[in-house]
């Protein structure tokens, strides 16, 4: 066990997997000589060399397309998109190729591919560089979509992703790279598709993931001052989505708030609340409430941007609403 940052945890997972399996390699913009534009692959180029840590041209479709092709030959690429906003430039390859090829050819093609992409707002990067479009990727059967909220999960889930024989989109949040937490040393793997309780409680269930976890934890501390104990379920995987711990918690609390950084419409909250109604209707004591980003492209101005992003106070208010 060591107390390390999210950045270090992600880096450690890749480093260990590359040491373990020579078929694992990294490709992406500025992953090599620069060391990753968020310094996640710092030191990799010097240690593993340019064959396994491949700087690419600015060509997202070619990055993902070539990753898919190489994966089909048995390699295990980790394709880094500098930010998830650039995934839109590779959308055909993610959606029409990665998510479909295994199925469409009767299981002949196997794509053990990881796409790492960092997203999230709050850094004044303007509308095109601040998105949290996680939900749209989770829409497509054939893709696995995971997004950790703690350093330990980041390490364990990324290792699972690299070992998975399915294409996995691994979504990071740029404001969380410095978050510290206890991370098991060595071979620590967290299975994909398992939600988990991050904070036990009895009064209300907060369902969240990634940045939402940080926001919800802060809100829970606030609420605890008034004697309200929130139980926080971290989804970790958006697809496959594990409702087990959510439903279990909800049957106890009968109230739920869902917190995500992305837009509310057609989002993770919409999916989760619908499943709560489908699977635990008899336990509903109050309408499920969603906390999410306001429906606006994020502006540059800091005050405006913060006002559009979900804050702990919004979660506190939502909890008071359902109680």
């Amino acid at each position: 066990m060591a107390r390390i940052t999210m950045r270090e945890a992600i880096s450690q997972a890749m480093w260990e997997e590359m040491e373990r399996d020579p078929n694992v390699f990294i490709l992406g913009e500025e992953v090599g000589v620069w060391g990753g534009s968020y310094a996640v692959t710092k030191g990799f180029y010097d240690h593993f060399g340019g064959e396994r840590v491949r700087d690419t041209p600015i060509a997202e479709a070619a990055i993902i397309g070539a990753a898919i092709g190489s994966a089909m030959t048995g390699l295990r690429p980790i394709a880094e998109l500098m930010t998830i906003n650039f995934a839109f430039s590779a959308m055909d390859h993610i959606v029409n190729q990665a998510a479909k090829l295994h199925y469409m050819f009767g299981g002949q093609f196997v794509l053990p591919l990881v796409i790492r992409a960092v997203g999230g707002g709050g850094r004044q990067l303007g509308a095109t560089h601040s998105q949290t479009p996680d939900a749209i990727f989770a829409h497509f059967p054939g893709l696995k979509v995971i997004s950790p909220g703690t350093p330990a999960d980041a390490k364990g889930l990324l290792k699972a992703a690299i070992r998975s024989n399915d294409p996995v989109l691994f979504i990071e949040n740029a404001t969380m790279y410095q978050v510290r937490g206890e991370v098991p040393d060595g071979d620590y793997v967290v299975p994909i598709g398992k939600s988990t309780i991050q904070r036990p409680g009895k009064d209300v269930t907060i369902v969240t993931y990634s940045k939402g976890l940080e926001i919800s934890m802060k809100a829970a501390e606030e609420l605890a001052k008034d004697g309200i104990e929130a139980e926080i379920v971290d989804l970790r995987s958006l697809r496959p989505l594990d409702m087990g711990p959510v439903i279990e918690s909800f049957k106890k609390t009968n109230r739920a708030v869902i917190v995500e950084e992305g837009w509310k419409s057609y989002g993770v909250g919409a999916e989760v609340s619908s499943r709560i109604y489908e699977q635990a209707f008899d336990y509903v004591d109050a309408p499920v409430v969603r906390v999410a980003q306001k429906e606006v492209p994020l502006p540059y101005n800091r005050t405006l941007e913060q006002s559009a992003l979900p804050q702990p106070a919004d979660v506190v208010a939502a909890v008071r609403e359902v109680l």
Binding site: Q124, P299, Y300
Partner: peptide, 15 residues
């Protein structure tokens, strides 16, 4: 990022 900016503070340096 001010209201008097050419993109009314919405775009910033890049926009």
């Amino acid at each position: 990022g001010k209201a008097t900016g050419i993109s009314q503070g919405r775009g910033g340096s890049m926009h």
